[in-house]
Design a protein around this nucleic acid. Structure first.
Lengths: 340, 340
DNA sequence: CTGAAAGCGCTTACAG
DNA sequence: CTGAAAGCGCTTACAG
């Protein structure tokens, strides 16, 4: 076989490697005749520049790294979708890694990506990440970094997020306006900023509407899955009969809640209203359909990628780049689970 | 900043680049003393081999390409999960691309990956791919290729699949054994091998059990989504009242079917039994829970990756590699939607 | 308009 | 045990 190189083309055409290279890159200081001949032969031989050599010379890989907690998750797979689609359009490829919510893995992956010399890194933090040295390493290494969704306030870099506090407030307020008198919250893990913020929004809404905050009806999801929603709903049903509204950290948890109450014959929303978060497709098709907060995953991925490419470009030109935080708006989606 | 290179370490230590390189790669012909000094300094300077240069020298990128129809799909995101996890363990990174069911995009992406000089390509074909020249190009280019799930019989390479025909047969047979007398099939698109095979399995089961095959109750899904399941169910309900069993190409379609019958008050499984395909998590939590065929996505991804790495290894050593087709077994999962 | 030459940062066969 | 040298395949500043 043997891969086709510039040398081969030059040899066959009896011209220099330099000229071949220039012709293929459409430099203007090459005669049209030579250019045509080179292009023709390159096509015939199916020439493909050796990206290893190009990378080495240009010091860029046209590749970016993406680290997310887990890909098997509607919200993240949507984001990934947006990122690789947009990246491809802009001439970049994406290497994807999953931290599986492990700080240790996350550290290793950062090292892998830096070794690979990706042009930039896009990342959503694992729930268990508390030490941020690996992120600082990325920045110290001069590799552009954009955090999205699961971010840390302690890292100075560009970010794309939603206003989780406001969104948590809106979800809770909606339950209140639906007439709920005692609202439970199935919150996310204690560490991540966004579950903290949603919780704070919940608390603030109760406060603003003069409702008592009761720590005993705030449950903390660890895995943030269906089973936790189901099991906490059971707890509410058996130990807190007076609860008439539940704000679940995520639609998946909310769907677990709905499943439990359906099972025991508690009427939704008449006896208990439920609202989820993220607007997963399934939330719209279960019975009763689940009210939720729409979290624009696709847009988030796209914006994060664009922001990263801007920084990469500035970085390449040696220009200064001012970090930016983009806050995307969310939307309350009213469905049957909270209908009056 | 300035990246740390072998040269810098050599200079600082007053030894040659060669020796530094050898020391870091643990060659035995380097004195322990030198080795220790090199390693110490490399660590202090946070030395990271420049992968561009390494790639160029070794002619391998330790990166593989993965092309799937779409990542926002439980089955594929599971496969992706398995592939990147396993690849990382073996020291490979994964570049992921989505064809979005477009043959044209698929072609472009193959070109991108070949230009990138990935060490191998893993791929599941788009539903609309009929011309296979781009796959032949991969093989002609000597790049190891493994096809999984959506394969083509016309391409000679390694494959990882399930026996869709048998699985389609099992699903249909299960409905028959549940007492269904007239079974409809909501099949997948006409082109992909696996939807053809599931359909053939359906047909064969009817034949073996002396049931009439009726073309008018076989509907073809184009998008293979919830809405199609819902709409075809409506058609069955309004135009084919005697149908008492439905085999849906996929759980998502099956869930649409269940939603429709729930809505109009048709009792499942008493009046109509339903079985899906793939064993998506949601199938187990809807009401009634959906019987299905378990399709081992995680295992499929893992096996495909392993097979690819074997071929890459053989290829590197210049050894011949015999293509292999691995057929994974599926399992009938009985749930409420087909309970007697 | 063309091309010789340097150099990106490694690896490795070879000489000593 | 150490190192000089060649070379992977490009790109580009420079000379002519």
């Amino acid at each position: 076989m043997g891969e086709v190189t510039l040398k081969q083309i030059a040899l066959e055409l009896g011209i220099s490697i330099t000229t071949v290279s220039k012709a293929l890159k459409n430099y203007k200081d090459v005669s049209p005749k030579t250019k045509a001949a080179v292009i023709k032969l390159a096509e015939k031989l199916n020439y493909r520049p050796n990206s290893f050599a190009v990378n080495l010379r240009t010091k860029e890989s046209k590749t970016i790294g993406l680290i997310i907690p887990e890909i098997v998750h509607h919200f993240f797979s949507n984001i990934v979708n947006a990122i690789i689609e947009e990246a491809e359009k802009k001439g970049y490829l994406v290497i994807i890694l999953q931290s599986n919510e492990s700080e240790e893995l996350e550290k290793k992956q950062i090292d892998l990506l830096l070794s690979k010399r990706v042009d930039g890194i896009l990342m959503s933090l694992s729930n268990n990440t508390t030490n941020l040295d690996h992120l600082k390493k990325v920045i110290a290494n001069n590799t552009p970094l954009v955090l999205f969704d699961k971010i840390s306030k302690l890292i100075d870099c560009s970010k794309v997020i939603i206003d989780d506090r406001n969104a948590g407030y809106a979800a809770t307020e909606h339950l209140i306006k639906c007439g709920c008198k005692k609202i439970a919250h199935f919150r996310g893990p204690l560490n991540p900023q966004n579950s903290i913020d949603r919780f704070l929004g919940y608390k603030k809404a109760l406060e603003d509407y003069n409702m008592k905050f009761d720590r005993s009806i705030v449950f903390t999801c660890e895995k943030v899955n269906f089973d936790e929603g189901y099991n906490f709903a059971k707890k509410i049903y058996t130990e807190h009969k007076d609860v008439d509204g539940i704000f679940a950290i995520t639609d998946l948890v909310g769907i677990g809640v709905v499943a439990y109450f359906n099972e025991v014959g508690v009427k939704i929303p008449d006896q208990i209203a439920i609202i989820g978060f993220s607007n997963w497709f399934m939330a719209s098709v279960i019975t009763p359909s689940l009210s939720t907060i729409d979290q624009p995953g696709f847009e988030m991925g796209k914006k994060a990628l664009k922001l990263l490419l801007k920084e990469i470009k500035a970085h390449k030109k040696g220009k200064e780049f001012k970090y930016k935080t983009i806050v995307l708006s969310t939307k309350l989606i009213e469905r049957k689970s909270t209908a009056f």
